[in-house]
C-alpha cells in the first residue's frame, strides 16, 4: 500500500537556504572549482546539458530494464553515428528499439528567456567581482567585468522509438508529470536553465509490409543564454593613491564686508495710572533722545537728583547716572507713555 503523499520519505538534515542566502549559494555553485568568474556557456554546453537532462530526468524503465538513450546529437557526419559503441545496436549496426534519441533543430534563435530579454546595447562590460591581489610588495585588487549574457532559444525534439504502446505510455507519463508546470529546469555549469515543453507529434511507421514501430516526438525549447569567457575582462584596480594639493600664492584683495549696525535702541517708558515719576539707573554711557509722547503735557528731567531741564529733546547719560523723569499728564485718569531713543556712546 503506497504511503500518503504528505508523508515525507526523505528528510533533509540541513535546512534549505532561502532568499539572500540561497542566491549566495547559487553564486558559489557557479564559481565552484574555478576562478571568480562564471564558467563559459556556449551552444555545445547547452546541448550537453539538455542531453544529460533527458538521460537523468526523463529516464524510462520498462519491465525493470532501462530504455537506452542515444548519448550524442546526431549531426550531418555520416560516420559519427557508427563510431559509437552502443550496446543496443544489432549486427546490421542498426539501433534496436526501444530507445530514446534527441534531435537538435539546427537554427538557434534569439532568446525569449525573461530574465535576459532586455539588453543594454554595445555589449557593455559590467562589474562582476573585485578580487584581491598581492604582487609580493603591495596589495591590490583586480576588477572582473563581464558583458550581459545573450539569450538563446534552442529547440530539441526528444523521440522515443519503440514497439509497444505501454512504452509510449510510460514515457508520456514521465514527461507530462515533469512538465506539469509547463517548464522544468536543468542545471548547466551551475546555472539553472528553464526548458519549456512544446508540441507532441506522432511519427510512427505503420506501413503494412514493413517493420512497424512507434515514434513519438516531444518538442522542447531550452531558454538558455550564452556566456563567452573570451569576452571577460580583468583589469587592475587602484593599488596606491597619491594626493596632491596645490595653492595659489598670489594675494586676493577683497572689499571689506559692510554690515548695517543698528546703533540705537528704543526704550518705552510707561507711566501707569496715578504714576508721574520714574527713575532709572544706567551702567553705560548713552545719549537719550525723546521720541513720541502720549498723554504727557510736560516733563522735567533730573540726573542724580539734579535738575537737568524741562521738555528737552536730548539727554546725555554717563555711567552710573540715575535718570529721573517727572511728568505732568494731560489726563490724570489714563496712563502715559514716553519713547526714549538710546544711542550708545
Amino acid at each position: 500500500m503506497p504511503l500518503p503523499k504528505k508523508v515525507k520519505k526523505n528528510i533533509s538534515l540541513t535546512e534549505p537556504e532561502i532568499l539572500f542566502s540561497r542566491r549566495k549559494e547559487l553564486l558559489e555553485k557557479i564559481q565552484k572549482d574555478g576562478t571568480y568568474l562564471p564558467k563559459s556557456i556556449l551552444h555545445s554546453d547547452l546541448d550537453g546539458g539538455f542531453l544529460d537532462f533527458v538521460k537523468e530526468d526523463l529516464k524510462l524503465v520498462v519491465e525493470g530494464k532501462k530504455v537506452p538513450t542515444v548519448d550524442i546529437l546526431i549531426t550531418t557526419q555520416n560516420w559519427a553515428q557508427f563510431t559509437q559503441t552502443w550496446t543496443f545496436q544489432n549486427e546490421d549496426k542498426n539501433i534496436e528499439p526501444p530507445f530514446i534519441t534527441v534531435v537538435r533543430i539546427p537554427e538557434v534563435k534569439y532568446g525569449t528567456n525573461p530574465s535576459t530579454l532586455y539588453t543594454i546595447p554595445n555589449r557593455r562590460q559590467y562589474f562582476y567581482a573585485q578580487v584581491p591581489t598581492w604582487d609580493g610588495t603591495r596589495a591590490g585588487m583586480d576588477i572582473y567585468k563581464i558583458p550581459q549574457p545573450v539569450p538563446v532559444d534552442i529547440t530539441y525534439q526528444v523521440k522515443i522509438v519503440c514497439n509497444r504502446m505501454r512504452e509510449l505510455n510510460d514515457f508520456n507519463k514521465i514527461i507530462i508529470e515533469k512538465f506539469s508546470s509547463k517548464q522544468a529546469y536543468t542545471n548547466i555549469k551551475g546555472h539553472y536553465i528553464p526548458i519549456v515543453m512544446g508540441n507532441i507529434n506522432d511519427e510512427s511507421v505503420m506501413d503494412l509490409e514493413k517493420r512497424k514501430y512507434y515514434i513519438q516526438s516531444y518538442e522542447f525549447t531550452l531558454l538558455g543564454f550564452l556566456i563567452d569567457e573570451n569576452e571577460f575582462t580583468v583589469s587592475p584596480a587602484i593599488t596606491r593613491a597619491l594626493t596632491v594639493l596645490e595653492f595659489d600664492s598670489g594675494k586676493i584683495k577683497r572689499n571689506p564686508k559692510s554690515f548695517e549696525i543698528n546703533e540705537t535702541t528704543n526704550l518705552d517708558v510707561l507711566f501707569l495710572n496715578g504714576i508721574t515719576l520714574i527713575s532709572q539707573f544706567f551702567d553705560y554711557k548713552t545719549n537719550l533722545n525723546v521720541g513720541t509722547t502720549k498723554n504727557i503735557e510736560s516733563y522735567d528731567i533730573f540726573i542724580n537728583n539734579e535738575y537737568y531741564g524741562s521738555d528737552i529733546s536730548e539727554i546725555q547719560i554717563n555711567t552710573n547716572d540715575i535718570l529721573k523723569i517727572i511728568i505732568t499728564k494731560q489726563d490724570n485718569t489714563k496712563e502715559s507713555k514716553m519713547e526714549l531713543i538710546s544711542k550708545l556712546i
Binding site: V70, D92, N94, V103, K159, V161, R211, I215
Partner: peptide, 15 residues
Amino acid sequence: NLGTNSKLNQVEPGN
C-alpha cells in the same frame, strides 16, 4: 532515416 527527421541513419534489410 529512422522515421522522419530523426537523423538516425539506418540500412533497413529488405523484405
